[in-house]
Design a protein around this nucleic acid. Structure first.
Lengths: 132, 132
DNA sequence: CGGTATCCCCTCTGATACTG
DNA sequence: CAGTATCAGAGGGGATACCG
């Protein structure tokens, strides 16, 4: 996704003060991953130790098998979690955070912490906005 | 709710070790907001001072008028940004972070920082996964 | 148990055109 | 300048059924 070319013009102050244009594209790809409906929740939950498929499905309320599978695969492809299958009967598969994933998990944790801390504040704002 | 220190807590049975079920629903609503395609980017960018509509559109590459307007309205309803319209000709409207928004901005910043730091690592993982 | 495969809807998003 | 209105398309995501 090549962003709209800043067609040469002024852009005097730079395209974005905080974010170099060259990084924008990649930031988007990370934000897209982060921004899908389930990734952050899965990362938040998988921290509590190696978890089995079914455990994850139980701990992430509302996720469908399809989305759990897809999300896990994506996270795995990004190197954020590991998948370990044990050749047993019945089958057992465990998912865990990689070191890389743990780094992201910390941020996710602050995000969730922030959400929890400002729960009421946001709710109040939304209510007032809706009322008006 | 302080989530940060929960690492290592082995047992922690229950529905979800880190996240009380009662908070899950609200976390979802915050994650949904965070997870839409543009909110985080707008928050990242609006930090650099009160910005006008057009400035935002220029600094967030690829955003359409429609999505910029929608995103701004949502953020405003959540109390994360302020909208100030000056009754002038030509019209001028400025957007800025609220204190609440600044709190989220810090997290967004770490997220973007993390993304930038592990850019190569993730890219490599993805490449290897695609190749295989 | 731990997935795949399929269908299908519905939302999110972009493009375009118009307005105060 | 700072939006609003409308339309159309793509694909994310849920429900269901089936497989190793």
């Amino acid at each position: 996704m090549e962003v709209t070319g800043s067609s040469g013009g002024a852009a005097a102050v730079g395209p974005c003060a905080a974010i170099p244009a060259e990084h924008m594209a990649f930031i988007r790809t990370v934000l897209d991953r982060v921004g899908d409906k389930w990734s952050l929740l899965v990362i938040a939950v998988v921290e509590s130790g190696p978890l089995r498929y079914t455990d994850l499905q139980r701990q992430v309320p509302g996720i469908s098998q399809r989305m759990l599978t897809l999300t896990l695969r994506q996270l795995q492809e990004d190197g954020l979690i590991t998948r370990t299958a044990y050749a047993e009967v019945p089958p057992r598969v465990e998912y865990a955070l990689t070191p890389l994933g743990r780094g992201l998990h910390e941020i996710v944790t602050s995000l969730i912490g922030w959400a929890a801390d400002h729960h009421d504040e946001i709710r109040e704002h939304r209510a007032r906005a809706t009322a008006a």
